[in-house]
Design a binder for these strands. Structure first.
Length: 370
DNA sequence: TATTCGTGGTA
DNA sequence: TTACCAAGAAT
């Protein structure tokens, strides 16, 4: 009995030829010409793009990718850059460990006088690349026979099979399926077509089944349950915290910032000093305690600068930010890598997270008024 | 295997 | 306002 994989492949590529996205990184590479099946694309810009695109929407990553290539056009320039410059180029993209991994790989390769590998096995040994990203790079660059299994493909296959559990439980099955669908053929267009189909038609919400080349093969569609798939894993409750932040200005008008430890949340980024409110504690007390514990500085809490909510994947924070004056002690790094006093107009030289960018913006608006 | 890594758009 | 979620990987 013949399986139906060849039919699915052909209908997918036929759909993609007319409806695939044009603004994907490998179709935007310098040179402009659309690559033919035998063309080999440069590995470095594809590597950067694929890492940026991990858990990040195409439209979000694209401007970062362009700026990055403008700033670090090749592996050598990235290797020669400072960690600060690299983090600064990544500022606002999130998952900052990815930037440090790119930098680390570039540095190690440069020290060994080696170039990026272009095959999946070699790529997968690099820090920050799992099977999907390595396969996507290899297939994009060399048009190798390496299928991918990203979020788009998982969702698509979960619906195609009407898989009755969270897709993560079907990882082995889905890998086998994409291998069968690709059937040893070259994967550059195939992988892109699968992702485009997931992004444009088999969308997370309100899939456009009328436009889908696989509609007649789709078990979820046949059952009318495409809206209910894929099955979501039971969400874990997200803790909420209130964070008190002190923007400390000294007599000169310099402001105190600290650099976070290299690993963990927002690793290596700079921040204003703060801490989470404890039960029964006033906001002012939280700020005083945070400054004392984190940098050994006694401060007087002044007026509130702003308050806002900020959500991370696994916690929700409410920031309350106060202007403060130092009263006693010298700022020293306790929980931070280092602390420095900087002029407000030099803050843009340091990489900050989105929440602290917002604080900087409020600081600017306030100083502009007075 | 389950958590932990950001951010901003969207309904 | 809230919850969901996106070109996943590391631990």
């Amino acid at each position: 009995m013949r399986h139906r994989a060849p039919d699915l492949y052909a209908s997918l590529l036929s759909w993609w030829a007319h409806h695939g996205r044009r603004d994907v990184p490998w179709r935007l590479l310098p040179g402009g010409r659309q690559p033919g099946p035998d063309d080999v694309l440069p590995t470095y810009p594809v590597w950067v793009a694929e890492v940026m695109l991990q858990q990040t929407r195409l439209a979000v990553a694209l401007p970062f990718w362009r700026r990055w290539l403008d700033r670090f056009p090749d592996l050598a320039s990235l290797a020669a850059a400072s960690r600060q410059d690299v983090l600064h180029a990544w500022q606002g993209l999130g998952y900052y460990a990815r930037a440090q991994q790119l930098h680390g790989v570039a540095t190690q390769l440069a020290a060994a006088k080696r170039q990026l590998p272009a095959d999946r096995a070699g790529l997968e040994r690099l820090s920050g690349l799992g099977r999907t990203t390595a396969a996507s790079i290899a297939a994009t660059v060399g048009n190798s026979a390496d299928p991918i299994l990203d979020g788009n493909v998982r969702r698509l296959l979960a619906r195609l099979l009407a898989f009755p559990a969270p897709p993560r439980q079907a990882t082995a099955l889905f890998w086998t399926m994409v291998e069968l669908l690709l059937n040893g053929r070259r994967a550059r267009d195939f992988n892109q077509a699968l992702m485009d189909l997931g992004a444009l038609v088999c969308r997370p919400r309100a899939p456009l089944c009328r436009c889908c080349p696989w509609q007649r093969h789709c078990h979820a569609y046949a059952k009318g349950i495409q809206q209910q798939l894929p099955v979501r894993p039971t969400p874990t409750p997200i803790p909420r915290f209130v964070v008190g932040v002190g923007v400390v200005l000294d007599r000169q008008g310099k402001v105190l910032i600290g650099q976070r430890q290299p690993d963990g949340l927002l690793g290596g980024l700079w921040e204003f000093v703060g801490g989470t409110q404890e039960p029964g504690e006033t906001m002012a007390a939280t700020v005083v305690r945070a400054l004392w514990q984190n940098v050994g500085l006694a401060v007087a809490v002044g007026p509130e600068l702003l308050r806002f909510d900020h959500a991370y994947t696994h916690r929700r924070l409410s920031f309350v930010v106060y202007l403060c004056r130092p009263v006693a002690g010298d700022a020293r790094p306790v929980v931070n890598q280092q602390v420095v006093w900087v002029w407000p107009h030099d803050l843009h030289r340091y990489p900050f997270s989105a929440a602290h960018i917002r604080i900087i913006q409020a600081l600017r608006e306030r100083s502009g008024q007075t």
